[in-house]
Design a protein around this nucleic acid. Sequence first.
DNA 1: TTAGGGTTAG
Length: 764
Amino acid sequence: MAISISASKLFKLRLHSPIILRHLSTESNPPPSPSPSPPPPPPHQDQDSLVTRALQLLQAPDYDSNSNTTTPLQELLFSSSSPSSPFIFRNITRRLSSSSEALKFFHYLQSNSPSQDILPSLSSTFQAIFELASREPDSHNKLLELYGTAKEHNVPLTINAATLLIRCLGRAGMVDQVLVVVKEVDPSLKNTHFCNVVIDVLFRLGRVDDALKVLDEMLQPDSECPPNDSTGDIIFGAMLRREWRGRSINDEEIVGLVSKFGEHDVFPDTFKLTQLITKFCRNRKTGRAWDLLHDVMKSGGVVEAASCNALLTGLGKGGDIERMNKLTTEMKEMNIQPNVVTFGILINLMCKSRRVDEALEVFEKMKEGSDGVLVEPDAIMYNTLIDGLCKVGRQEEGLSLVEQMRSQNGCAPNIVTYNCLIDGFCKSGEIERAQELFDQINRESVFPNVITLNTLIDGMCRHGRINSAVEFLNDMQSKGVKGNAVTYAILIKAFCNVNNIDKAMEFFDQLSNSGCSPDAIVYYTLISGLSQAGRMDDASSVVSKLKEVGFCLDTVCYNVLIGGFCKKNKLDKAYETLKEMEEAGVKPDSVTYNTLISYLSKTGNFTTAHRVMRKMIKEGLTPTVVTYGALIHAYCLIGKIDEGMKIFRDMGSASKVPPNTVIYNILIDSLCKNDDVEHALSLMDDMKVKGVKPNITTYNAIFKGLRDKNLLEKAFELMDRMIEQACNPDYITMEVLTEWLSAVGETGKLKKFVQGYEVSASSA
DNA sequence: TTAGGGTTAG
């Protein structure tokens, strides 16, 4: 008792010392807490029996009596013959039934210890009390109270006890208390595990900046608590978290942190690195993704193909071929083996840019391993190539790849394969073959999906078989393949194209009632169809519906409406729409202005047209070839060809907008109609000089001009040129030439022309 | 890896 007083005196003396106020621990290298960890190897074999014996004595009636004589328990715990270890008391405490029992034992030790040396043991005893309390109900409040008791008795917390406390408080959401404990822990005790727990807890509580401050200290070059893989897991995991409390870690911070971690040889694993790169790429930040990957490479982290693939995908989407090449070279240099995905990305890119032959070349080399890497293609790769072939009209080659697929194990053609082929046949107008494939699917127990449905419906609609398309839709729906927004967009567009607006509206309503809501494209398609048809009231009511469901009009949609109002001679409504557009923050583009300029000039309002053009320039837009075309066309229409020619000369020289075929066509047509075919012919020469290719409209206009003046020889010359240029005649060409050449007895020339066309068509 | 996107001058 006397000694215990002196011990407490000692504590009191130290109470004023700032050092002891920090909860110093004497336990130098503690095992991780709170899981019950095996005690350090006992100095004496009888340590276990001592613990057992002590626990028995703690049940005895004289345990908490204030006896003046030395009790057996005191003898056991404090005598010099007892095995001494700071962990003995802790091990006894751990085996007590509750934290309150343990606290009682703590008080007993404090009161009965004959020596001051008990201090280190009391810290680890307290840790054991924390461990018990942490497993009891209401643990956070109990621990907080115990923390107060420890401070009161000047028992410094072990770092493990502090860790346990913080974790428990964090779980209970007690962010302020967490920060207090962190502040009060002796910095010299902090270890990496402690810091990891603090950071993890702070992140979960949304205190990102506090967490990053702790992390920043860990990342210093001379840090006492350098980051380890667990630190990396916590931070890299947090970077990828979608749901955030507090603020999120921004991209710049992510790159900086990964780089700093690299200095400590800690790297995100392949999965996390890949995810981070993907995240950057999705936000179109390929530059950051590039830096991230290269930081890891430079610091010596492991980089696998998956991470490179993520970056290659991002670079491909951004069209950064140069960096793609650089990265694939680096992969080779660093011995990072490309896989089927790597090749898939490259082949897909080539196919999408219509370089199918190059894609096939890479594919062959990959299969043979002739470039040192042998990779077996998968179904996705075959599908990519088949789609690429079909998109350039090479369906037959696509079909032969399907045969290759069949001969390779585990690579059977699937619904995607067939959808690509069906689309190919549909786009080339071979609807029957598309339907045959569709039937084949059903025989092969590959199940058609909504994409199959839409592809076929689109093909039928584009080739004038709307009724078959609707029939097919009904048939499929009865078999369980339901249409979606895409289906309806296709049908709405198709019915608008044939000017069956009522049917288009009907399908729109059907979609709205089918439980599958129309998306923005469906609205845009219908608004466009209605505007083209001049049904501006209907268009406006669809616009209202679109706004009601929360979609916005974009530039193109506003342009469609402005064009529609112009067509209906509702200039005021067009201007109103323009104003609304500007107020909604949707910037008018050159099409917006061109639409207005075209309407104004066609209605003879040239002054206003030029004023709008000046406004266009003031808004930072450059007049385009269409702007000039609109003005030229309008001047030509009222017979002011000179004015048109003036603009034509001006656009090429002063404005540096090179005229295109359409501009020449307008002028050539007008000159011919104005009896000036010579001038029109000189413009055709000019086209040749400028490298602007005439098309069938050009030829039709000039043929009419030549016919009116009966300039046969010139016509023959141009007919030859048409064949040379593989420019196909259309029904207008045939009508003009047949009538004219028959009348002048030159049917032989006509026959030769048609044959030449057939030859040029077959060679093309 | 597969399907629908609307606008301005001829």
